[in-house]
Design a protein around this nucleic acid. Sequence first.
DNA 1: TTGAAAGCGTTACCAC
DNA 2: GTGGTAACGCTTTCAA
Lengths: 357, 357
Amino acid sequence: MTDGIVQKTARVTAATIAAYTGLSRATVTHVLNGRGAEQRIRQDTQERVLEAARVLGYRPNASARALHTGRTGNVALIQSLKGAYLPERLLLGLTEALGENNMYLTLAEVPDAVLDDRAYLPKVLREHTADGLIINRIVGIPPSFTEAVTTLNTPVIFLNVNRPFDTVFPDDFNGGKLAAQYLVELGHKHILYVGSSASVEYHYSHVDRQEGYRAAMEEAGLPSTVFLLPPHPETDEQVLKDARVQIVRSYLEAAAPRPTAIVAYELAEAMAVLHAVNQMQIRLPQDLSLVMFHHQLDHRFCIPITTLCNGMHSVGREAVNLLLDKIGSPGTSFPSRVVPIQLLEGATSGPVPNLVR
Amino acid sequence: MTDGIVQKTARVTAATIAAYTGLSRATVTHVLNGRGAEQRIRQDTQERVLEAARVLGYRPNASARALHTGRTGNVALIQSLKGAYLPERLLLGLTEALGENNMYLTLAEVPDAVLDDRAYLPKVLREHTADGLIINRIVGIPPSFTEAVTTLNTPVIFLNVNRPFDTVFPDDFNGGKLAAQYLVELGHKHILYVGSSASVEYHYSHVDRQEGYRAAMEEAGLPSTVFLLPPHPETDEQVLKDARVQIVRSYLEAAAPRPTAIVAYELAEAMAVLHAVNQMQIRLPQDLSLVMFHHQLDHRFCIPITTLCNGMHSVGREAVNLLLDKIGSPGTSFPSRVVPIQLLEGATSGPVPNLVR
DNA sequence: TTGAAAGCGTTACCAC
DNA sequence: GTGGTAACGCTTTCAA
C-alpha cells in the first residue's frame, strides 16, 4: 500500500510527484503539460509520472501558474447588485465560450452606491484578479466609473449598452423593424406599439425598438401608433396597486379602429396587454396578434408569446470573442458587435382577422 | 511630471513602488496592508507609499497573494450547462455574501456529457482553482460524480437538493403546508393541488410540496385532491403543441365541486391554470384563488400571482455561510440548512366566494 | 533524456 | 522603523 502514506497529505504539488517518483520537478511538469514527447522523455517515465499524479490526486495550482504566466484565466463580469439584467442564456453564452478557451467567469457584483461614488473603486477593480472585464450595467453607467475603468490598463468591454466601440449589444432597431414587418406580412394594418414611458432615457432599446417599428410601418405605408404605459413598478407594494392592465384596457376599448396586432416592448408590457385582452374576451391569436421582445421563447408561459429574441446566448459568446481579441491586442479598440434579433413564432400571432382583411 | 515615465509601464508591483519611493519592498507591503501603525512606520513614509501607489496605479496581484496564502478567494459554482436552475436572487445571495467576505463567485458550467462520464472530470475539479465548491445540479447527480467530488479534499456543499449533510435547500414540505393553510384560513374547502407528473423522481420538491399540502389538508379535516399535468415541454416545437391549458380546462369543467383555490407546483403549472381559467371566464381572485411556488413575487406578470417564495436569496447566503464554515474546518460535515418558504401575497388570492361560504 | 536554477509578486519572519 | 530573505507552486531556459 504505497499510497497509504500520502492519503491525508494536505497539498500535493509537482514536487510531491517528483519525490514520489524520484524524478526532478522539471521532468514532472514536462510530462504533466504534455510536453513529454517533445522533450523526448521515456515512455515508461511518462507513465510513471502520470500514474503518480493519479494516485496522489495531484491538481495543479492555478494561482501558481497564473503568477508565472501572467494570465489568471478569469474574466470578471461586473454589474450592479440590484438592476442586473442577467438572463440564463447570457450566462450560458459567456461561460460556454469561456469554457472553450479554458477560462472562467467570475461574478463581481457591485453595490450601486459604490458605482456612483467617484472615489471608491470596487475590489475587483482595485486588484489584478482577471484578465479582462465585462461591464454589464444596463442603466446609465456613471462617466466617472467608465473613466476609472478605462485607465485600468486591463481589457474591458461593455454589454447591452449602445456604444460605438468595444461593446456587444442586440440590434434593437432592426428588431423593431422585424416585428412590424412580420405583422405586416400577416396582413395586419393596424399595429400598435406598447412601450413604457419614464424609461426613454433608461436604456437605448426603448428608443431603438420603437424607432425600428416606426421605420418599418413607414416603409409599408402604414400609420404607426405608440402607446406608452407608466413605467413598471419596482417594489412588491407598488406592483399590487399597479393599474397598467386597466390602462391598456381603457385604451383598447376607446381605440378606433382597434389594433389587430400589438408589439410589446418586453414581457411586462406583453403581460399587461394579455390580461387586458383576456378581460375583454379578445382571443389570441384569432382576434389579436401579440409579439414581444424577450430573451427566449419562454416555455413556462404555456401559451408561448411570439418573441423577438435578443439572442443573449450569442451576445454572451460574442462578448467573449471580443474580449479575447482585446486581451490579444491590448490597447486596441474594436468596433462594437451588434447581434441580430430573431423572430421565434409562438402561439399568439397569426393572420389578420377576416373581418378586416 | 514625475509620472510621465511610468505612464505606459506594463506592470506595477510592490517593487515598483519601492523603487519609486526609495524604500524597501517590506516597508511598502506593510503600509499597503494597513500594518503601518503596527510596524511603527513613520506617518510621512506611509503617505509617501500610498501616494506612490495611487500615482502609479498599483493593483496587487491576486494570484501572487493566493499562491502565498493558499487561498484563492474564489468559490466555484458548478452546474450542468443546460438544466441549470439559477434565479437572479440566488446569484445575488451568493455574490452578496461572498462579497462581504472579500471573495468571488466563479461560474463553472459543466456539459451534461461530462457530468455523466465517470472517467472525465471537468477542468474546475482537475485544478486547484477555488477554495470551495458549490454544486447546484438539480436533476439527479450521478453518484460517480458526487464520489469524485468528495475525494477531492476541497470543501464542497450542495444546493437545492435534499441531502442530510452539507446542503442548503428550501423547506418545500412546510411550503406546501403553508400554501394550504393560507387558503384554508381564507375559508376555502375545495383546494386543488396542480403538479406535474413525470417529474416525481426529478426533484424532491415535486414530492415535498405535494406532501406538505396533503398534510395541511388532513390537519384541517379537508379532502385533498392532486391533479398532475404531463411534464412541461422542453423544446420550442413541443411547447407550441402543448395541450396543458386544454387539459386543465377539461379537468376544471368536469370537477364537481369545482375547486375554489389552487396550489400550483410552479410557474408553468400556474400559467396553464391561468390560461384555462381565463378561457372559462373564471375571475381571479373573485371566483378562484391561485397560489404558486416561485422564487419571487414576479413584477413582470402585471397581475402578480400569490407566491410561496423559496427564498433563493437566503439560500445563496446560507450556502456561502455553510461553505465558509466547511472551509474553516476541513473534513467536517455539517447538518444541512433548510431555508423556510414564505408567502408573498399577490393579487390572485382572496376569501372563498360567497356562494360556497 | 534528465536535472538545476531562476523568476513570477506577495507575504512574513527575523535581523538591524 | 526599516531592510533582507525565504517561501508559496509553477514554468521555462539552459546544462549535463
